[in-house]
Design a binder for these strands. Structure first.
Lengths: 123, 123
DNA sequence: CAGCGTTATATCCGTTGGGATATTTCGCTT
DNA sequence: AAGCGAAATATCCCAACGGATATAACGCTG
């Protein structure tokens, strides 16, 4: 059957407007912010500059009715960021969307993959 | 219900390798090549430079076992391009994948959309 | 009240993706 | 054999994206 020579990543983006969209990058960023409690730490974990991480948070907060991330300056640890209820909801919906979409199209993905060039070394 | 304030485009990309992927752009290009019989005309129809259109065709032809587009130089009309059987198959599979994926995730898309900022003028 | 760590913000700058352009190649047509 | 129209290929160039860097703002802690 030779089904999984290469996993073939499945990337999905919802485009709401010219500047507003939700995709795998923002989703992963939310997860790292939730895990670390910090925008900069989340960016670092993803090999992403703070500037970029902060910009993504900005646009996310700007496109939804309620902010997905609440950040604070100063304080005991200098500040931090938390993923709000809305943020967790958005993340959950997006992840669920990805999973549903991927599994629904699994057979098409396989067929496409079968038409691919054989990779000489799958290493 | 207020379902469709903004259609919210659904973009899906299959990433097979660092340089190899299939997405909406290549799919649309294939359709335009099939319709016009020319890479340059297809590019023009999409507001895309010939260079870019040709590059996309190159990578597509290079990643699948058989070429998706066959091009010819010279001849009665100076040349042209046709979408091969494999090309049509790839296109059909990709479009089917998109449709299955989108409809499977429809409810999640709606929920995400409901969390969005109200657009002042949907015009 | 000085220090710390993080957010917030601005400025600079290197890379690069892709458009514009030009030229060559090709095969039919006349 | 010359002409045509599109593919193929190379070169130039610019704008824009994003990284790197610097600095300020902030609020708890000791």
């Amino acid at each position: 059957m030779n089904d999984t020579s290469h996993p073939a990543r499945f990337r999905l983006r919802l485009v709401f407007g010219p500047e507003d969209w939700m995709g795998p990058g923002k989703a992963e960023l939310l997860e790292h912010i939730a895990a670390t409690g910090s925008i900069s730490a989340a960016g670092r974990a993803m090999g992403m500059s703070y500037k970029r991480a902060w910009q993504l948070v900005e646009t996310m907060n700007g496109m939804f009715r309620d902010p997905l991330v609440q950040s604070s300056r100063g304080g005991a640890r200098g500040g931090g960021a938390v993923v709000t209820e809305t943020g967790q909801a958005v993340l959950a919906e997006f992840r669920a969307l990805e999973e549903k979409a991927r599994s629904a199209g699994a057979e098409h993905i396989e067929k496409l993959q079968q038409m691919l060039i054989d990779i000489p070394d799958g290493k």
